[in-house]
Design a protein around this nucleic acid. Sequence first.
DNA 1: CTAGGGTTAG
Length: 739
Amino acid sequence: MPASPWPTPRSVRQASQLHAVLTTSGKIVHPPSTGHLLNSLTNCLSAPRHLGYALSLFDRLPLHSTFIFDTALRACLRASGGADHPVLLFRRMRRGGVRADAFTFHFLFRCCARARPRLCRMLHAACLRTMLPSAGTLVANPLIHMYAALGFTDDARRAFDEIPVKDAVAWTTMIGGLAKMGLLDEARWLLVQAPERNVVSWTSLIAGYSRAGRAAEAVDCFNSMLSDGVAPDEVAVVGVLSACSRLKDLDLGRSLHFLIGEKRINMSDNLVVALIDMYAKCGDIACAQGIFDAVGRGQKPQPWNAIIDGYCKLGLVDVARSLFDQMDTPDVITFNSMITGYIHSGRLRDALLLFMQMRRHNLRADNFTVVSLLTACASLGALPQGRALLASIEQRLVEEDVYLVTALVDMYMKCGRVDEATIVFQRMGERDVHTWSAMIAGLAFNGMGKVALEYFCQMKRDGFQPNSVTYIAVLTACSHSCLLNEGRLHFNEMRSLHRIHPQIEHYGCMVDLLARSGLLDEAMDLVQTMPMQPNAVIWGSILSACRVHKKIDLARHAAELLLKLEPDEDAVYVQLYNIYIDSRKWVDASRIRMLMEERGVKKTAGYSSITVARQVHKFVVNDQSHPWTFEIIAMMEEIAHRLKSVGYAPITSKITVDVDEEEKEQALLAHSEKMTIAFGLISLPPNLPIHIMKNLRVCEDCHSAIKLISKLWKREIIVRDRSRFHHFRDGTCSCNDFW
DNA sequence: CTAGGGTTAG
């Protein structure tokens, strides 16, 4: 090609100016000028939005040589505009009889690294048919990359092995592909075999270990690299910093920070982000703030995001918010971090307000936003709002992914919709260990322990390795459904088969299961042999079981320890008080009362709440403050009447106040959960389940009464209290105990 | 003209 008489544009804007000059001077019809324009425009492309312009220039050219096609393909690659245009270009090339060369396939394979597998294989076949020497690194390296990106590591490996003379990039591409797939041992082995170990190979391995949660090995890798004499660069340091923040190793982080100065590594934005993130996650927020103040307050949102997320993770959302308010151009990540921060601090209203504010910044919610909000809906039991979010998936505003669908399963489960959660789960394409765990946990706390265990079996049959979270779900299933033998089996298997060390949560489930089954001695043996100090959950399980199984001495012991851990927890005093009353130890009981008064512990009032038309209604016992009190009382009378007509006798035996039987019945009827359900019955459409929340445990009488209400009114009723999830339907409850 | 990393979610 002859040297162009025109200047070379360095931006899209300059290219379009040259375009205008060419058009007005009539030179646009001159193919070499247009070719020059297309070529230099291609060098300026970095986002899909100008790809159409480049391709329109291509269409204007009368003659399409191999070089021009290759340039158009290069434009597609630079603009990262997907695989559709490249494939069309390739078809036109073949129809026009234009010969493809090595560059053609080089660009095609790179464009198609995220395309459908069938298409990729067809392109590979087309390449083989051209009789080009396809094992040269110019073609083979992108081919390895494409197969590795698809997850077809065997095909990638075959392409790699067929290269007669491999260059450094071939080795690095192969090692990087294996590392990205999580095949870290293979990647490491290849690195050892490679003629040259460069920074790029080491970095992909470091990042691979870090992503796989093997952060210690990532750091080892970094050290091996240094002792191998390979100088770290900015990218390598970013990788090892992220491993460091996972390890929460502040000393290591500081030494890496020092290394950056020592080796004069360029302080890029990414490095600033990684440093701020590392200091924040390692617990030195002051240092993170220092770096941010020194270099992070530029125009770019990334360093702001890192420090804002750091404050959110510490629970200091208001500090995070004040930084947020100082920003000029927050991006989606800023909003997501702030929204998640609010949600984790229970400030759902603030989260929602920010979500609505996103529109004003012309930002669209993405998967992260939707997942966070789904989690909020799950913890609120806000099914209608959760469904509204689902609509955003159906309208293709966000792409379905594993996180999203798992959050959806979790949301349905926490709202008591086991059937809908199951449908979502069955329909989803990709599952991982979190999805299975969410499903098993959901079935467990909806009282379907047996089904949960069936899912656990299927999970293992499908080849998924359960992790410690999965086992918390499995053991919860056993304890909530009193599956003693299964619980023992899985507790043993998690150690022997999967080499997972039980954490306090696992012991908690086992102690609960044994205690509920009346095996309090065995439960206590477990408590004494476990390698950590028992926490309040464990003593709580023991104490509750003592009431049912009438073990006063053990109850006293458990309560004593529990009160050391949580001296202000009124429920403990009440529990022990009730145990003494049950066994007619009046003196001991009154001592507890005195103790509470001495220590100034007040019994927190029980309350229940329900969300109707996006408004939360809260009731305490005998509540008269609601504007609909009149209707509610009428409905409660109706409930009392209907319960009585089917022979229901209120369970008054647990009431220890010295009043007559009728007063006891009256008191029970005025319990907040019954009032809330009465309000739900009159205010919610009949097809909706009644979903209420309670801050304390549901009492025995309410539990039995609600069972009957669900049958008499043919309504699903879901009650979440502080430790159980009760799903009432047609006279039964998913949770057949209430202590 | 090729290869590696990164703040937000279940």
